[in-house]
Nucleic acid binder design. Structure first.
Lengths: 253, 253
DNA sequence: ATCAATAGTGTATTATTGACACAAGAGTAA
DNA sequence: TTACTCTTGTGTCAATAATACACTATTGAT
């Protein structure tokens, strides 16, 4: 929660800088040790967690806004971003309204305005991203999808909608490519699919089908060091991947 | 194009009534005589065509805005509406900016503001909708998809994006149900699928698959009056349809 | 009565999916 | 060094779904 002074300063600056009534919230997915992770923030002197978000500069394309916001949170450029929904319930920021309404008159107060928020999901390589809190937040951390608490505002809904979208777009967007590191094993990739789809897949059939798409290159060297049989390492054949996606991968999971 | 007086009146009223910088544009699809149709408007004293659109009341959920706008254009309540994309290029209304910038100072001039527009596609029963121009437009008409001219602003892009979305959602949204009249023949339904997918389908396999989904009820009486063998009439079994959609129809087209 | 156009139905072939079992490699512990 | 356990890699068979294709039936027009 902001102090009165911070609120005043932020509001004045925001009104001069950003489009009013419009915000962007990002669901940033990463994949680590077989788990889907989401980037969450908590605000100083507030309980509860938020998705990272921000506003649109008065003359900025919204795709750039989303990129800018995420660059600040992750240090990454050129993030894979996909717009998925606008949340437009007039009551969606009620919590902020209650929290800030007595600190500043409505006309000046940025946080008692109504905001439509544009939801983006982002896919990043977990190892490349370095979570960084913004000026108002104490922490910016990866949270396991299964351990995400109830979020503030409507951010739980936003997260859920992002996940549903991810599931539906699994055959049409380069989701594996953007979430996996450069090299990975087949079981790791399968884990990602299982996590997103929330169901078990048959190991052998998964491998057959994945290889059938012709989008994977097998590396010469297997992964070393594991306690068991060394799995092969794969990487995506980006050209084939993109070509295949324009058609969409046939069949469901 | 508005006169200076109209522009002034409209701007003053709009600023008092609507959220600034946000608009809604609707791609309204209908299906008639084997053709996909789109609802288009042309503005008095302007050449070129627009998609129907409008703005969001200051305290109105955006889904209601879209419904309200379409009720005015079609006379229909409870339209099937699906949000599909936000168009946020700062230059997207450049044409309006040029057209209106000298008529009123920017601070007052509603039509030289930047607008993010939320795209909705709507599916309506062609026979139920009665196209009605708004106060600024001379005509509101159905246009065959193949005969849509280049549209004003970025509306050609919006239409194209809506079509792509329709194609992708064919197995996940009740698209046939909302576009077809209560009763229809199998060849008519096939035509709809062929139009949306932009490819020919095999008559026999289409019928087998459609019936296999278990979402159609065959009426006792065939369609009378045709110049050839009378086809059976079908209607959707809404309950089964909805149940099937939660899973998505298996397989692609 | 014949023709042309459209609608309804069935079957054989092929491709895809799903279920399942065994062999191979890598560390571990006797 | 050997046996054991865990994990990965691969093959096969049966069921299912997709595809290609041909014939029959009905209607209005001539």
């Amino acid at each position: 929660m902001l102090t009165e002074k911070e609120l005043k300063e932020y509001s004045d600056n925001a009104r001069a800088t950003y489009l009013p009534h419009i915000s962007i919230d990002c669901v940033v997915f990463g994949f680590h040790e077989g788990m889907l992770k989401v980037l969450l923030l908590n605000i100083k002197n507030e309980t509860g967690w938020y998705l990272p978000g921000g506003f649109v500069l008065k003359d900025e394309p919204i795709e750039l806004s989303a990129n800018r916001i995420l660059k600040e949170r992750t240090g990454l450029d050129d993030i894979f971003l996909q717009q998925f929904h606008v949340f437009g319930d007039p009551q969606r920021s009620k919590e902020h309204f209650e929290m800030y309404k007595d600190m500043l008159p409505r006309a000046e107060n940025w946080f008692t305005d109504r905001f439509l928020t544009i939801g983006y999901y982002a896919l990043v390589d977990f190892y490349d991203a370095i979570p960084q809190p913004d000026i108002f937040s104490a922490d910016c951390v990866w949270r396991d999808l299964n351990e995400v608490p109830e979020l503030r505002l409507d951010h739980t809904l936003i997260l859920k909608t992002a996940l549903d979208t991810l599931r539906l777009q699994l055959n049409y967007q380069p989701i594996g490519y953007n979430l996996m590191p450069k090299e990975f094993t087949m079981p790791e990739l399968q884990k990602l699919y299982e996590t997103i789809l929330d169901k078990k897949l048959d190991r052998r059939n998964f491998q057959r089908r994945m290889l059938g798409f012709g989008i994977l290159k097998r590396s010469e060297k297997p992964r070393k060091g594991g306690a068991h049989k060394a799995p092969y390492l794969y990487s995506f054949d980006l050209e084939n991947y993109k070509a295949a996606l324009t058609e969409g991968f046939k069949g469901g999971w």
